[in-house]
Write a protein that binds this DNA or RNA. Structure first.
Lengths: 208, 208
DNA sequence: TAGAATTTACGGGTTTTCCCTCATACTAAT
DNA sequence: ATTAGTATGAGGGAAAACCCGTAAATTCTA
């Protein structure tokens, strides 16, 4: 439970110092917080994967190529939206990174207005996914509090079985099921059976 | 009611007759059913929006431009994956159509193997969305059978309220709630309260 | 060995669901 | 006008499910 909600920031990854500077100035003028990196390696070392905001990445960089950086970021759990900014892209590369889940690819030089608009969109997307992740994580933490048996009982409870049936199913007494069930309700922080089922269903559907 | 599950087909929309022919041959050799259209207008007129499969669209066509065809298709409810095949795309156009939800954009001329692979992917994607839509539609049809009052009662039931509370909430007798509740269970084709909640939750989350 | 976790019995209480009969009222179709 | 369907209600009864406190045994683990 550290401060999970750090302020969103635009991570700029571009080896071209002067262009990077232009991006920083442009975005800061719009009130965005920015952080700059000269290459993908530096970014991966410094930036935590759960950073909120979005990334602005140059495609053609020494070291890790932008397209590979995207893949590496995803495999490391970075979920922030990624916007590519490049002067060297061709159609095939553009299609590739977009298929890889990039938010957009913008050609250099680009209008400040377009850049700002995309970053705004990136923040909006990140906001939604962050909210989703927050819900999932909270539920995960609750779930982690359950003992193995309690989890087992919960599965059957949300499956719609009555205490009596659960008892027979697990070959334990009805009273025991009641005890576990009560604990489950407590630990999952729900008031009603309906809430328990709803939480469970939305969790397994979004987390899967 | 009608036969909803027509066989998946690749809709080819390209004004270049000889290239179209090559696509047809290539895909038919792999066992795909194909249908060809000379322009977007013809396609929109002839093809029903719930057609399953995927679309192969040329970008630069007389009449409707490919990028606009994508937008028009989406606004008309076409949900099939769209693959662009073009010789005239630039980076900006590629990014635009990919942002618009295209599955991929491939440059002409292209390898037969790549084309087939993408079409296969398109079919796979369509399969999943079609399955989802099937579930949603079935639930919608069940929902449509409910009377206004029954729907109202159901909302409160899945909200976790007891019959007594629902009765007070709607200012009707408990007995009446019971009647409605029983009908809801029948019409929604669920056995248990848990199933009702689960169906409801997954419906509102996927249909929204 | 202390402490969770798991289990159970006993005994009791509350709540909910489910079903019954009987009855009224409105609408739509025949 | 009659019939069918829908919605609504009263009042009550029986079965089932659920909830809880107390006390205690067992097992496994830190």
């Amino acid at each position: 439970m550290g401060k999970r909600a750090t302020n969103p920031v635009v991570s700029i990854i571009d080896d071209d110092r002067s262009y990077r500077r232009w991006i920083e100035v442009t975005l800061q003028a719009e009130g965005f917080a920015v952080e700059s990196y000269e290459c993908g390696g530096e970014f991966l070392e410094v930036c935590p994967p759960d950073r909120s905001g979005c990334a602005l990445i140059d495609l053609a960089m020494p070291g890790i190529h932008g397209a590979n950086l995207l893949l590496e970021m995803r495999s490391r759990g970075f979920q922030m939206p990624i916007i590519f900014l490049t002067a060297t892209a061709d159609v095939a590369m553009t299609a590739t990174v977009m298929r890889g889940g990039a938010l957009d690819l913008i050609e250099k030089p680009c209008e400040a207005a377009l850049l700002v608009e995309r970053v705004r969109e990136g923040f909006a997307v990140d906001c939604k996914t962050a909210a989703d992740r927050g819900v999932i994580e909270k539920q995960s933490r609750r779930l982690a509090q359950l003992t193995a048996r309690e989890r087992q009982v919960m599965e059957l409870v949300v499956g719609g079985l009555a205490n009596k049936q659960i008892a027979r199913n697990l070959s334990i007494s009805e009273r025991t099921v009641e005890v576990h069930r009560a604990r489950v309700m407590q630990k999952m922080e729900v008031e009603s059976f309906a809430d328990l089922v709803a939480r469970h269903v939305s969790f397994v559907s979004t987390a899967a």
